[in-house]
């Protein structure tokens, strides 16, 4: 019950008026919780309701606030009419490459920040913080020019998923290093140092002691990196025109501009695209929130 916390403060039996006041407050609080949950949940609910109803119900005004029937044709049709599987496969490939790159590099940087004291460490930390704040759109023009012809190698990185994953990883890497550093900080220094004394090199300590102890953190960084690339729209839209290698974010957005796409199909496609990140974030929530908030709260 909402009032249990305060019962220790007031040992005497509460009068009827006080109890009524508490009840009113607890009802008021419940209403507030409900409002917060409704605001959070309603758009997703509405998306699902429209997608699982038959098409004709989406052109009825005023719409019913709960589903009137169950009709999953929209899901079947969107798979039939749009290359959804290919978009999703492209997104998964893109996100997978960006994740491997980001986690691999972030482990090294986070270990150097967490376990070692060196000249320039503070500068490196500030560099990471500052790059984390750089808006993607500000360098889209030079990146586009560079990608047209990579200056050193003379190859085009445009219209290529590996090329796109490179730039995605560059933007997620600072956050990855930061989150992992916070995770590595939780490994007691004595544990690392004992291993060093026993003759293990610092890299072996990282590999055999620090990493196994921080697996959840690694997974959290992996999930954040994967879905950054999965969701990313600006670079993907700018670099990829070829239909065969379009990631799902761009494919979906292109459906918006096609006026004849029925809304329930559009929303069905959107749901399919949104389910993986939602599932992973909910499952991994504890670690992701801990990792990200550690940086923000602790400073």
């Amino acid at each position: 019950m909402a009032t249990t916390v305060r019962s220790g403060v007031a040992p005497h039996t509460p009068s009827r008026r006080v109890r009524a006041g508490r009840l009113a407050r607890s009802v008021g609080a419940s209403v507030l919780v409900l409002v917060v949950c409704l605001i959070t949940f309603f758009p997703v609910y509405w998306m699902a309701v429209t997608a699982i109803q038959s098409s004709r119900l989406s052109t009825v005004y005023p719409p019913s606030l709960w589903p009137r029937d169950l009709d999953l044709t929209a899901f079947r049709e969107v798979f039939r009419d749009e290359p959804i599987e290919r978009w999703i496969a492209n997104s998964a490939l893109l996100a997978g490459m960006a994740t491997i790159l980001c986690v691999g590099l972030a482990i090294l940087g986070a270990y150097a920040l967490s376990a070692m004291r060196w000249r320039g460490r503070a500068v490196f930390a500030v560099f990471l913080l500052a790059t984390q704040m750089l808006p993607e759109a500000l360098i889209i023009v030079p990146i586009f020019k560079i990608y047209n012809e990579f200056p050193l190698l003379g190859i085009s990185l445009r219209e290529s998923l590996p090329g796109l994953s490179l730039i995605d990883a560059a933007f997620i890497l600072p956050i990855g290093v930061w989150v992992l550093k916070n995770m590595f900080d939780t490994v007691p220094r004595e544990v690392r140092e004992a291993a060093l004394v026993d003759g293990a090199g610092p890299i072996r300590v990282l590999w055999q002691i620090v990493l196994p102890l921080t697996k959840p953190g690694l997974v959290a960084v992996g999930v954040v990196a994967f879905f950054y690339a999965w969701n990313e729209f600006l670079f993907a839209q700018t670099m990829i025109q070829d239909n065969a290698i379009k990631p799902a974010s761009v494919g979906l957005a292109s459906m918006i501009s096609m006026l004849d796409t029925p809304i329930d199909r559009l929303l069905a496609a959107g749901l399919i695209f949104a389910i993986p990140p939602v599932v992973f974030y909910v499952v991994m929530q504890r670690y992701i929130v801990a990792g990200i908030t550690a940086g923000a709260v602790k400073g």
Binding site: C37, P43, I263, A274
Partner: peptide
């Protein structure tokens, strides 16, 4: 539940709000 909007990708977010703000329906 709070993680839901946070985890929800941008493009589907736009899709559902465009639909919710549709002038007709």
């Amino acid at each position: 539940l709070m993680t839901l909007p946070w985890a929800f990708p941008d493009v589907p977010t736009v899709l559902v709000f465009l639909w919710m703000l549709n002038p007709n329906f």
